[in-house]
């Protein structure tokens, strides 16, 4: 078994044991996430009580888009959020030394230390929303479409991960990056909007400069309207560009890391 898979499985085992120890915490956080997802879906439901279309998208098309956006976010929460959130605090406190001393890729070790089972559990709820919306729309995607959708969700996860790594890496320069992670949530709000709603400057900034809109719209388009090479290429290009940018910024920041005196 490759070394990194072994390390990841050990971290996963540790996280599961920890979750079983703090069961109340698990239920509380699972409820918190579930409620936030419900709030986002309710917003869409309420708007469609008063109008038939948002930028040409019907109710269940929007639900499918929001579900897709929530799914990527749940995976980010489940696999990386806690570890990256702690990375910011560790950089400030100097506890990041611990990761530097480990025999492995620093970014891998620092960002895969903890799994959040509540986030992963809620990813099934997001999948339920997507499946329900697809059913309401009478969609019958082929196995290949589903495979492509899954691959695009994976690309979306990498992009969100990269954006978060870049945001948290600012702690290397700012020292106190407290609250900076909330900027991620502000940006992720854009991913619940259809591409067609963006016009003018907003289109340039949020569709082309920041990849938040592509991350959710590209996979949703595959389910709704089948394979479209433009969307796939845009997503692939964004994935590579953002991941490379995250690696560069993280390693530049790491050079500035000065630990902390005792």
């Amino acid at each position: 078994m490759p070394k990194y898979l072994k390390i990841w499985l050990a971290s996963a085992r540790y996280s599961i044991t920890r979750t079983l120890m703090f069961r109340f915490d698990f239920f509380l956080w699972a409820t918190v996430e579930l409620l936030w997802m419900a709030v986002n879906l309710l917003l869409i439901a309420v708007i469609y009580e008063h109008t038939d279309s948002i930028a040409g998208w019907k109710k269940y098309e929007m639900m499918l888009l929001v579900g897709t956006s929530l799914l990527v976010q749940r995976f980010l929460m489940g696999f990386f959020w806690s570890s990256l959130f702690e990375m910011g605090r560790n950089i400030k406190s100097g506890a990041f030394d611990f990761f530097l001393a480990q025999p492995g890729n620093i970014l891998f070790m620092a960002s895969t230390r903890k799994l959040d089972l509540d986030g992963l559990l809620n990813s099934f709820v997001a999948m339920g929303v997507i499946a329900y919306s697809a059913n309401q729309l009478g969609l019958q995607p082929s196995a290949l479409d589903l495979l492509l959708y899954a691959a695009m969700i994976f690309c979306g996860l990498i992009i969100h991960y990269s954006m978060l790594v870049i945001t948290i890496s600012l702690a290397f320069w700012l020292t106190s990056a407290q609250g900076i992670e909330s900027s991620y949530f502000t940006l992720s709000e854009f991913s619940r909007l259809p591409r067609a709603a963006f016009k003018g400057v907003a289109s340039v900034v949020f569709v082309w400069l920041l990849p938040v809109v592509v991350v959710s719209n590209a996979p949703a388009e595959v389910l709704l309207r089948g394979f479209q090479p433009n969307w796939v290429l845009a997503l692939l290009a964004a994935t590579i560009a953002w991941f490379v940018a995250a690696l560069i910024i993280f390693h530049r920041g790491l050079r500035r890391y000065a630990s902390a005196s005792s």
Partner: peptide, 22 residues
């Protein structure tokens, strides 16, 4: 202000086909 931009884009699109909501 970013949140306000989301509001502007989302509601702007919702109002595209109608003059009044609620």
């Amino acid at each position: 202000l970013f949140h306000l931009a989301v509001v502007f884009i989302l509601w702007g699109a919702a109002y595209a086909g109608t003059l009044h909501i609620g």
